[in-house]
């Protein structure tokens, strides 16, 4: 959802959205097969370069978006570091058992989570949902009734948030009081979510009837308002990952900074 703030358009925005998505999914699978800590760190750095320099958002905002990454990194590493299997003990304290193996494995997982977060946020910041769904209809032959439903659903998001605020104000005006503790929280949840959801369903139903009447579900001989194709930047994008994945593999073999080649054992 990048249409709420202003940003500079970069080459990452011009990539074919379907290709970008498929590349990202391929990279996700590729990263699962990286077991070498050195390569993992190099791979993270190369995705970070794209995120920091090429998303076209101001650095202050990039920094703001990076705050959760720290939490992700810490929360992913800790449980593996403290409770992982291993033989070379570094620290033992009650249930906590830190070993050299689990320490490296934990750090590896932290970097892996960081890579996923970086790739995902880079995608979200540089892709307009409308172009993504138009591209999926044209390149991936996704049925229009799914694409248009997704686009309508995304458009409804701000309305849902507004609706939520209306419900909260209405509750305040009418003096709705919920008790304290878990029970009160449960009631608050129920009194807010049920009207919100039921209103969502009513609205979605009305929109769907209108869309069906206008043949949005018609898939044969459909023409598209946005025509999305391929260009040179698509080659650059795929090339970037091919070259740098190779480079990270080579550097990890030749100049390792940690003596760990496989974190699994």
């Amino acid at each position: 959802m990048n249409n709420t703030f202003d940003f500079r358009e970069t080459w990452l925005h011009k990539i074919n959205p379907s290709l970008k998505l498929l590349t990202m999914i391929f990279l996700f699978i590729l990263v699962i097969f990286i077991h070498n800590l050195n390569q993992m760190i190099l791979f993270t750095i190369m995705t970070m370069i794209l995120f920091v320099f090429f998303t076209g958002h101001p650095y202050k905002r990039i920094l703001l978006f990076s705050i959760p990454f720290l939490f992700i990194f810490i929360s992913t590493t800790t449980s593996m570091i403290f409770f992982g299997k291993g033989d070379t003990t570094i620290l033992r304290w009650g249930l906590v058992h830190v070993t050299e193996e689990s320490l490296f494995r934990g750090i590896h997982l932290g970097f892996r989570a960081l890579t996923y977060a970086l790739l995902g946020l880079t995608f979200a910041l540089t892709t307009r949902p409308v172009y993504l769904f138009y591209s999926m209809m044209q390149q991936l032959k996704l049925n229009p009734k799914y694409s248009y439903s997704f686009m309508a659903g995304i458009r409804l998001m701000p309305i849902m948030i507004e609706e939520f605020q209306h419900i909260r104000s209405a509750q305040k005006v009418r003096g709705v009081r919920t008790g304290a503790g878990m029970n009160g929280l449960f009631h608050l949840f129920k009194f807010t979510s049920i009207p919100l959801l039921s209103q969502c369903i009513r609205r979605a139903f009305r929109i769907a009837v209108a869309m069906e009447a206008k043949r949005f579900d018609y898939s044969k001989e459909r023409t598209f308002y946005y025509k999305i194709g391929f260009s040179k930047v698509d080659v650059v994008f795929v090339g970037y990952f091919v070259v740098l994945t190779g480079l990270s593999f080579y550097l990890a073999q030749e100049f390792p900074f940690f003596p760990v080649t496989d974190v699994r054992d």
Binding site: F28, G120, F123
Partner: peptide
């Protein structure tokens, strides 16, 4: 995911 989840692509 499109809202920019911290967990990203996962």
């Amino acid at each position: 995911f499109l809202m920019g989840s911290e967990f990203g692509l996962e």
